[in-house]
């Protein structure tokens, strides 16, 4: 279908072995095009976090194939040597809670990522501040995380996920702590970013408020995914 974005085929993940083994992912197939935001929905224990961890290269799947951008990163074994660099350069993470680094100000929380990739400080900060405009946290650039409201923190966390312009963003319940208005605002930003930077975004959620916004949704039950078309409501 598409060269870029995310392609997952026949992904399996088994925790442990023998009698106590748990098959958290049995058959996962997903495709997310660049510029697309898809929802991943499923009951608790269905394997959502496991899938994000596999895709985020922090745990190793048991079998299957994963493609990020135009590179196969997993084919019954890792195809990439430096998973750390892969995470840093190619994947943006947005968590349920913002998890900002409390001892860095807003700008450096975001600029840290390009810095880690070896970019000069000034350039990294410039890159961060540019995003703040789009995310409407420009005025808080010098603040410490503890001085921000929950919504502002989450927007900074989104900026951090976006700053290295990764081809893929994985968001784990990004709207859980937000009220409906702010939750929709976050989804709007994600759509906007996906569109602008050709990013493929997977949003794990069971937030009723935002489910109707997805054009495409993957349901996962007992480690098996199933594609559905969503309402794709215009939430503007």
């Amino acid at each position: 279908m598409i060269g870029k974005g995310i392609v997952i085929e026949g992904l399996k993940k088994r925790y442990g072995s023998g009698e106590t083994a748990v098959d958290a992912l049995k058959e996962v197939n997903m495709q997310v095009a660049p510029g697309e935001v898809v929802g991943l929905i499923g009951p608790s224990g269905s394997g959502k976090s496991t899938l994000l961890k596999c895709l985020g290269a922090v745990i190793e799947p048991t079998a299957g194939r994963m493609k990020l951008g135009d590179e196969i990163i997993y084919d019954n074994g890792w195809k990439v040597k430096d998973l750390r660099a892969l995470r840093r350069d190619r994947i943006g993470f947005i968590f349920q809670a913002p998890y900002l680094i409390p001892f860095l100000d807003v700008t450096d929380n975001v600029a840290l990522l390009p810095m880690l990739a070896g970019k000069p400080n000034a350039e990294s900060r410039k890159q961060a501040v540019e995003l703040f405009k789009a995310l409407d946290v420009e005025h808080r650039a010098k603040a410490m995380p503890s001085q921000l409201s929950g919504g502002e923190q989450q927007r900074v966390a989104i900026a951090r996920g976006l700053v290295n312009r990764p081809p893929v963003i994985l968001a784990d319940e990004p709207t859980a702590p937000l009220d409906s208005e702010r939750a929709l605002a976050v989804i709007r930003i994600l759509n906007d970013m996906a569109h602008r930077f050709e990013t493929a975004i997977i949003v794990v959620t069971h937030d009723e408020k935002i489910i109707p916004t997805f054009k495409r949704i993957y349901h996962i039950r007992d480690g098996v995914t199933q594609e559905e078309s969503g309402e794709g409501k215009d939430f503007q």
């Binding site: 985020g56 922090v58 750390r84 660099a85 995470r87 840093r88 350069d89 993470f93 968590f95 998890y99 680094i101 409390p102 840290l112 990522l113 880690l116 990739a117 951090r160």
Partner: peptide, 16 residues
């Protein structure tokens, strides 16, 4: 610990 997990996830080297 949580910050360290985040730092590692976003690609900070163990050495750092």
């Amino acid at each position: 610990i949580r910050e360290i997990a985040v730092l590692k996830l976003i690609g900070t080297k163990n050495r750092t």
